[in-house]
């Protein structure tokens, strides 16, 4: 750990850094921006061995960790490091392709347009089956959800869901499932297994896929999800290989997840 006093220069303008730094405490000024703790300094210039465009000057007394190579990074700051690199590369990728700063919201909308076939460059934009399918999902997802009130306890909720499969009311099922996804604290592991068996009984491959995606959201243990997939693989693999359903289900899954993330 090194300590620097206010107004000291850490790296001069036009210098090629021999090290890079992590701010534990204090502030550094660079290119008219103030960088506070948990930031990395000169990392990219260090890796690419290019000159820094502006100097790094201490704004508030600093404690820094210095590194001569990225493999010196310890486990406790690895998450910050990965986040930094992820943000850096995402921003370049999106600046390059979308000519904009990275935004999750925008990306979801873009992907949605792509899947719906709004883009001009696609071969399947006039695919009526696909459009019909997506409209049906829109109907399932958007127009009916507000009419639902969820039961208070999880057992009643489970019964509603099971009944709706038995009654072949998949629209009701999806809406209940979506609305209750994060309402109850109970575990869904065994329940999902039961639901998948029911979906197989009514020979609905799309529903099995949907439930596997729900499993991906509700079960944290990869092994359990893999077990579910393995158990039902024969049904998924050989039963009516409709790629649009796979694709649409992925779209629905993405929407569900992002809604959760954006709520936080």
């Amino acid at each position: 750990m090194i300590e620097l006093k206010k107004n000291e220069i850490l790296i001069e303008k036009e210098e090629i850094p021999k090290k890079f730094y992590y701010i534990v405490e204090g502030e550094i000024e660079h290119n008219r921006k103030v960088l506070g703790k948990e930031n990395f300094l000169a990392l990219i210039h260090f890796i690419t061995q290019t000159k820094v465009n502006e100097r790094y000057k201490v704004k508030k007394n600093c404690k820094l960790i210095e590194f001569s190579d990225i493999d010196e990074i310890e486990e406790d700051i690895l998450p910050d490091f990965l986040k930094y690199i992820s943000r850096y590369s995402n921003n370049i990728i999106f600046k390059n392709t979308l000519n904009k700063k990275f935004s999750i919201n925008e990306l979801i909308n873009n992907k949605e347009s792509f899947i719906k076939g709004d883009s001009l460059d696609l071969d399947f934009s006039n695919d009526e089956d696909l459009n019909e399918l997506l409209n049906t999902f829109d109907y399932f997802m958007n127009e009916k959800e507000s009419e639902i009130s969820l039961p208070e306890n999880f057992d009643d909720y489970k019964k509603e869901l099971k009944d709706s499969i038995i009654e072949l009311n998949i629209s009701k099922f999806i809406n209940y499932c979506k609305k209750g996804l994060y309402t109850y604290e109970e575990e869904w592991d065994d329940f999902l297994d039961e639901l998948i068996d029911l979906a197989i009984t009514i020979n609905d491959r799309a529903l099995v896929l949907y439930l596997l995606y729900v499993a991906g959201m509700k079960i944290n243990d990869y092994k359990k999800i893999n077990d579910l997939i393995k158990k039902n693989w024969e049904f998924l693999r050989f039963n009516n290989n409709n790629i649009w359903i796979d694709y649409a289900m992925r779209f629905v899954n993405n929407q569900l997840l992002f809604e959760e993330v954006l709520k936080k």
């Binding site: 990965l82 690199i85 925008e106 990306l107 347009s113 001009l120 460059d121």
Partner: peptide
């Protein structure tokens, strides 16, 4: 990735690469 108008090929990953670091930002 996808812009409003169209998708883009972003990057090609080859053996030895670790795929998925985009997730660490959010």
């Amino acid at each position: 990735t996808y812009s409003k108008k169209k998708p883009f090929l972003v990057h090609i990953y080859t053996p030895g690469d670790f795929v998925g670091i985009d997730k660490f930002q959010e």
